[in-house]
Simulated assay, not measured.
Amino acid sequence: MNTVREARPGDVPTILQLIHDLAIYEKEPDAVKNTVPRLQEALFGASPSVYAHVAEADGEIQGFALWFLNYSTWEGVNGIYLEDLYVRPDARGAGHGKALLRRLAQIATERGYARVEWSVLDWNEPSIRFYESLGARPQTGWSTFRLTGAALSGFAGTAAQ
């Protein structure tokens, strides 16, 4: 039986393993710095900053969605930003990804949020086709920018002076 549920503290090691698996799929096998204690604190600490849902089949986690709230200044309400969606390769095609996204859409509509959004790598055609089949559309005219590493710390030092 396939189910989607909120993640529980005992799921954290499995979710972290799936994050590592996602990094391998996205051709960044050494990029994950997260740890079980860090993820445990982010999901279940005193002030959770992220949320997760898991898809199960026969009691085994087959995939996960990790998300957080964003805010639309124009709409004046929150939205959901889907940081990661991943389903084990051998479990794909069984509806787990669709069920996870549907649950996030339900949460958004129940709470009056304006949107659910995420990023996808340009080369990831299977995911792009899947998202488009659900009615999602890419945002045109926008580019993602990011400050990290030396650029982040360098700019922070410059800004503090």
Rank of each mutant, 00 (worst) to 15 (best):
Q17P: 00
A23S: 14
T158K: 01
K98T: 13
V120W: 03
E110H: 11
L82T: 09
A108D: 09
V12Q: 05
V77Q: 11
V77S: 15
Y113V: 08
R92Y: 04
A46N: 13
F68W: 13
L85N: 03
K33I: 08
L69C: 10
H20K: 15
A151S: 07
L152W: 00
A150M: 00
T3A: 15
P13S: 10
A91G: 07
G63E: 07
S72N: 10
Q106Y: 03
T73W: 04
G97K: 05
G157L: 00
P126F: 08
A23H: 05
L16W: 06
L69S: 12
V4Q: 05
I128P: 00
Y113C: 11
S143V: 14
T35F: 06
G93N: 09
L43D: 09
G149C: 02
T148P: 00
D90C: 04
T3G: 03
A94D: 06
E60P: 00
L85T: 03
V77T: 15
Y131R: 13
L134Y: 05
I61L: 08
E117Y: 05
S143L: 12
V36K: 10
G10L: 11
P89C: 09
G141W: 05
A42D: 12
A23I: 13
I24Y: 02
S127D: 07
R111I: 06
S143E: 10
I80L: 14
G112T: 12
R111H: 13
W67T: 05
G97D: 06
L147Q: 03
T144Y: 01
L147E: 04
A114W: 01
G112C: 09
A151M: 00
M1I: 02
S72C: 09
V12Y: 02
G59W: 06
G45A: 12
T3F: 01
Y51T: 09
S49M: 11
Q106C: 06
F130V: 06
F44I: 15
A57Q: 13
F68I: 04
S49W: 01
Q62V: 01
M1S: 13
A99E: 08
A160S: 15
V77F: 01
A46L: 12
P126G: 04
D58Q: 14
D90I: 06
P13H: 09
